[in-house]
Write a protein that binds this DNA or RNA. Structure first.
Lengths: 253, 253
DNA sequence: CAGCGGTGTTGCACTGTCTGCAACATTCAT
DNA sequence: ATGAATGTTGCAGACAGTGCAACACCGCTG
């Protein structure tokens, strides 16, 4: 809608692929170097772009800070966090929290038992939307026409033999998930990984987020993991209650 | 330099404070509503801004993704990471990795032993630049005039009684750090937390990053923490060697 | 239910800002 | 030294962005 801003913002994903110099940026934008220069300068002033010692441009620090703040303003996340930790303590497996936004599902929190360090490598990254248990829950709650529209638009990569093959199968799965109020992913993304997930609902009953417990086959079988379902649902319900204001937290004093 | 882009980008930090509606955005930008609308729309198309159900605008998901990718493209981080993990395994304390960029020092990696989950709450956030051990190392390496300029510009908040009080004291501290090649923060940020830090240097000898080990008084005294200094320095040197290409990693096959 | 204030949205004429050019500066390689 | 490649500046012209005013759309309230 606004050409100049549009061009400027197009620079960001471009730089996300790796550092680039003025010429490259200008070329890929299809504008004159001087134009690219001015755009980059503006981005630079706002700290979104950084000029490294070899003069090439990189994404800048402010970007982290912004993403940070945005994250902290997600109140579901804040409320859910202690619950996720408690769940993780009691079962030991990886716990995820995810939301849906504009045709994407993304993790906004994660508690991992064994490899704490890998954590942020996933937070913020889009989820395998056609197979992930949390994605099913979030999409299943969309109004039907929207659900259809999204399902048609998606790609259906065959991660494993159990991956959702196409839109039809996906919509049927969503219908099932919608009815039962929980979801699973049994080796649909990675052969040896299973997940159980439950929805978190706002005051109006709409699904605002979803949480899941994941574990590899070698630790627990799918059946064993399923025995955790009641616990997962209880946790999700507790978060729902708190989020929607039904279960006010008691603040000290 | 570019008015339109400038205005558009000014919206981001504004929204970082919390969701806002069209009117508020227009007011704070000092532009007409229709103008703000067009800017927001453009930001929206790029996924940087999201419109929540109550019509207010929030920072969007793409921002996370961008920050993610930017992060992954920092090669120091990638090289350093396994070393940080190893250090953490051998001493058990929190390990940080930080870089300097445009008057800010920010953590780009962290390995924490006890509370793995808190991790990302810090990564990406600017560091307390006047007291943090890593910040001292990074600033100490700037050319003198620049160092002076930065030191003068900074605020010197009194986090604790041991915080750096003013530019003069800071510059003297930097001089000391510069000479000895390592730095500490003994309760300068939080009364009970101490840190030891060492610099990571590129091929040209310039400091490209800094790493530190932090631990609360209750776990180890400052003196005990200082005994880790040789280990920290060795780790930093190992990273430096690999980063600058002096210690090529052996890839299989 | 009509009328009202508060939103967000659209179309349009004007003008001010962005554009591309061409000339200049700088760095590096040969 | 000479040249090529890259980044930078100033400028005139054009077009994209601006603000206005009118419209559409709520949810309120009397």
């Amino acid at each position: 809608m606004s050409q100049t801003v549009d061009r400027a913002l197009s620079i960001l994903p471009l730089l996300a692929e790796g550092p680039a110099d003025l010429g490259q940026v200008a070329d890929r934008l299809g504008v004159h170097k001087s134009t690219a220069l001015r755009l980059l300068r503006t981005l630079h002033e706002h700290g979104l772009v950084y000029r490294q010692s070899d003069q090439r441009y990189r994404l800048g620090a402010r970007l982290f800070a912004l993403a940070q703040e945005a994250m902290e303003n997600l109140d579901v996340r804040e409320i859910a966090h202690p619950h996720l930790v408690r769940l993780n303590e009691s079962c030991g497996h990886t716990v995820h929290l995810a939301v849906y936004e504009e045709n994407e599902v993304l993790y906004i929190d994660k508690v991992e038992s064994r490899y704490p360090v890998r954590m942020y490598s996933r937070i913020g990254k889009p989820v395998a939307i056609t197979v992930a248990a949390v994605a099913k829950l979030l999409l299943a709650d969309l109004p039907e026409h929207e659900r259809r529209a999204v399902a048609e638009k998606l790609d259906y990569p065959t991660y494993t033999a159990r991956s959702t093959p196409n839109a039809g199968a996906f919509l049927r799965e969503l219908e099932k998930v919608r009815e039962q109020g929980w979801a699973t992913d049994l080796g649909g993304h990675e052969e040896s990984i299973n997940c159980v997930a439950a929805p978190i609902r706002g005051a109006d009953g709409r699904v605002v987020a979803a949480m899941s417990v994941s574990a590899p086959n070698v630790v627990v079988t799918a059946d064993e993991l399923l025995t955790l379902l009641p616990l997962v649902r209880r946790t999700a319900d507790a978060i729902s209650g708190e989020y929607s204001g039904r279960t006010p937290v008691n603040y000290p004093a």
